[in-house]
Amino acid sequence: MARFGMALDTTKCVGCMDCVVACKTENQVPEGFNRDWIAYQTDGLYPTLHMEIRSERCNHCDQPPCVECCPTGASHVEDFGKIVLVTENECIGCKACVASCPYEARFINPKGYADKCTFCNHRVEQGLDPACVSVCPTHCMTFGDLDDPQSAVSRQLAARRHHALKPDAGTEPRIFYLT
């Protein structure tokens, strides 16, 4: 069974927010909320500066704290691609998962349940890429099976330097940033 993940090339990302708009449109994300977003990180002091632009979202961690703390099992790891999902009509809106996520990738949908990136599982099941990946004008995102060494994402990760976000939190995230 696949274990989906993503590689994002920070040397290509220009922070155009097409991925953000695509996600909102595809998933009808409520106004005022985002399932994915852009981070602009600047390190150093002028004139010695380094900037990294990243498209961020739920990391679909291998050790997801949001799933472990869920009192009803609404937050779960789907068999299909090991995607972390929320079953809306099982969620009581206790917000434990919101507090448990080191990436703060979750929010409470105005309808009351916990909401977050689904890796567009409805598209992936049809063999399509997630909406954010499919619209990226610089093709900086690669989505695929991390357990398949021949997948495009696995080959990129094998060939390029990369880092994950907050690895010290120990959740084993599956979104990687190529540098």
Binding site: G32, F33, I38, Y40, E56, V98, A99, E104
Partner: peptide, 17 residues
Amino acid sequence: MTELVLTRHNAMIDPLL
């Protein structure tokens, strides 16, 4: 020094949980 700017502004989450 690190400066981090996010375009996200989700209620209850940003700027601080």
